Amino acid sequence: MPFTKKNVINIAIALVWIINGIYCKVLNYVPRHQLIVARILGEDHAAVLTRTIGILEAGMAIWILSRIKSRWCAIAQILLVAAMNIIEFIVVPDLLLFGRINIVIAAVFILIIYLNEFKTHVSLS
């Protein structure tokens, strides 16, 4: 994979998914994620669900890096990030790193995904 601006941004986006998936959820280095899952989906299976979500997020990183059906991947990312953040904004704002401001960070992330995949001629710098 050559180091074009688009590929570098793809790697950065994939790293976000890997860090949040593996480091924060699977390895549970950020227990707040499990607390969020517990509050939204219930405490009974929060640990297993958090790890499962983390593994799926790592899978998203693999999909991003594979470039297979990249537009579908971008749409899936946008929908997932939007849905997760809207739910968290409403249900658990007290557990978010930046509270309700997290939704702004999510919107910027969504914009980066969108511009990188659908508007490659637009400069992100």
Rank of each mutant, 00 (worst) to 15 (best):
M1K: 10
P2T: 14
F3V: 14
K5A: 15
K6Q: 14
K6I: 14
K6C: 10
V8G: 06
I11C: 03
I11H: 00
A12S: 13
A12W: 09
L15P: 04
W17R: 00
W17I: 08
I19C: 10
N20S: 12
N28C: 09
V30H: 07
V30P: 03
P31R: 03
Q34A: 10
I36Y: 00
V37D: 05
R39M: 11
L41R: 13
D44E: 15
D44W: 12
T50L: 02
T50Y: 02
R51P: 06
T52S: 11
G54K: 00
L56E: 07
G59V: 03
M60T: 08
R67V: 13
K69H: 13
K69I: 11
S70H: 07
S70W: 05
R71N: 12
R71T: 11
W72A: 12
W72F: 11
A74H: 01
I75R: 02
I75S: 06
A76P: 00
Q77L: 09
L79H: 06
L80Q: 02
V81Q: 06
A82R: 04
A82E: 04
A83R: 02
M84N: 13
M84P: 01
N85H: 08
E88C: 15
F89C: 04
I90R: 06
V91D: 12
V92I: 12
V92C: 07
P93D: 04
P93T: 06
D94S: 12
L97P: 04
R100E: 09
R100T: 14
N102I: 10
N102V: 12
V104Y: 03
V104E: 01
I105M: 09
I105W: 07
A107M: 09
V108G: 03
L111T: 13
L111S: 09
N116H: 05
N116G: 06
F118W: 05
T120E: 13
H121G: 12
S123Q: 09
